[in-house]
Amino acid sequence: MPAPETQVGSTADTTADAAPDGRVVLDARDIARALTRISHEILERHKGPEGLVLLGIPTRGVHLARRIAAKISQVEGAEVPAGSLDTTMYRDDLRMKPARALLPTEIPPGGIDDRTVVLVDDVLFSGRTIRSALDAMNDIGRPRAVRLAVLVDRGHRELPIRADFVGKNLPTSLVESVSVRLAEFDGVDEVTIK
């Protein structure tokens, strides 16, 4: 899978390349609607914002977690803590490549003990990232429950993991690649497939 552009400096390129880079399956408004729906579903499922913690998986999951937190506070008028959880050292393919740069882990001040943690990621694929996130969380605390919210579920799970909140189910073949771009990081909000 070619990873999407990771350099912040390449924002202009990404925008220009957006069209030839594959078919757009979600545009900015679709993403906003999906996140609004996910926010409401989280609130409905959890019966309010109390005891919720959102943890995004870097890089783009963190931005999604912050957006969901903002929507929830808009709706409920209560702040929901949002942080990030780096899974690099817990990955099962750590030994198969050179050691990778670590990404920020920011646990909100209240911690995660006895809270309901909603993990947020952009694309759910094999499920291996989520497994490593569950392991990483084990070393940080004991949540009361863990839920999973993703913007895109593209199928092809290799582990018994499923998402509780899904922005869009996107049936794909293994040769296709799905790219999520977010304004905070890539300068534009869109999901493309090619």
Binding site: M1, P2, A3, P4, T6, Q7, P58, T59, R60, T88, R91, K97, P98, A99, R100, A101, L103, D122, V123, L124, F125, S126, G127, R128, T129, R154, S177, V178, S179, V180
Partner: peptide
């Protein structure tokens, strides 16, 4: 730079 795992690339 390219070592930062992202999105589906990281899951592959």
């Amino acid at each position: 730079e390219p070592s930062i795992p992202t999105t589906d690339g990281a899951d592959a």
